[in-house]
């Protein structure tokens, strides 16, 4: 029997009052499950965590490797990908609640006990409330648009703009010619930067832009060559290493082989 049809028939869409009862039942079951998990001995918990992790990973691995039906882009598991994605989104939404709770707890404590810097915490708490109310109740008003676009956007842009100042001071400090390699790097950096700006390009503007052998000696051409022929292979090499490193750690997590990490430590608790 087709898995999708079987699941639809086994779990028909909730209607009427079941729309409310079903989520409540799920919450109740989750609470029970939470306490059951807490009371499990370490060995059982380890096996449970490993099995669930394996199953979750197996779903995506199978969905990827199982051949698709002829004439379609789907196999017998593809239909469930959005549902599994929704499960992940729901989990993320719950953790967002925990995150906001953490933020409010810490800063409320600061305000109540009037610890150092408590006015900042008070501003933060007020901002959270005002922004949340504006977003939920007054989404299509000037009030919300002003907060979102005039205040938040401006703050965002201002923070990004500080990077220009930081780059200047960091580059000034870091670019010291202390070795042959450092000299080579600095010359390359100067050529790339000069090749990007009109003032730099002006230095070799008398060489034709295209259509001549001499064009390759223009600063913008040398800069482009450095980015394409020297920078790109280095980036690609780092990319290969990162890809394989990511594959290895994903395998270790999927098969619960990761030692010393969080899940291993949790599983070993008794």
């Amino acid at each position: 029997m087709n898995l999708q049809k079987f699941l639809i028939s086994a779990f028909p869409a909730a209607k009427g009052s079941m729309i409310w009862i079903a989520p409540l039942l799920v919450i109740a079951c989750s609470v029970v499950l939470f306490f059951v998990l807490q009371s499990l001995p370490g060995r059982a918990r380890k096996a449970l965590i490993a099995s669930l992790t394996f199953l979750a990973g197996l779903f995506y691995a199978l969905e990827f490797f199982w051949p698709v039906r002829k004439g379609t882009d789907e196999n017998f598991l593809t239909f469930a990908v959005p549902t599994v994605g929704n499960v992940i989104n729901v989990l993320a939404a719950f953790t967002l609640g925990l995150g906001v709770f953490s933020l409010v707890r810490i800063h409320t404590g600061k305000v109540v006990k009037q610890r150092e810097g408590w006015p900042n915490s008070a501003v933060l708490l007020i901002s959270i409330v005002v922004m949340a109310v504006a977003g939920i109740r007054f989404e299509n008003t000037l009030f919300f648009r002003s907060l979102f676009r005039d205040v938040l956007n401006s703050f965002d842009a201002a923070m990004f703009a500080t990077l220009a100042f930081f780059i200047i001071s960091a580059a000034y400090r870091a670019f010291r010619i202390k070795s042959a390699e450092a000299t080579l790097l600095m010359v390359a950096a100067l050529v790339v930067m000069l090749g990007q700006i009109p003032i730099g390009q002006y230095l070799t503007h008398w060489i034709p832009e295209n259509g001549s052998f001499a064009s390759i000696f223009r600063l913008d051409s040398i800069s482009n060559w450095l980015l394409l022929t020297v920078n790109a292979p280095a980036t690609r090499a780092i990319g290969f290493g990162l890809g394989i490193g990511g594959l290895a750690i994903a395998l270790r997590l999927w098969l619960s082989l990761e030692r010393g990490a969080f899940f291993e430590a949790k599983a070993d608790e008794s």
Binding site: A164, I168, A171, R173, K178, M186, M193, L194, P198, G200
Partner: peptide
Amino acid sequence: AITPVSLTLILLFVLIGLGNYGM
């Protein structure tokens, strides 16, 4: 806007030059 970008990079060259001269 490409003018301030150019001038900023020129400033960077000058500063790097000064730092290295100082060293």
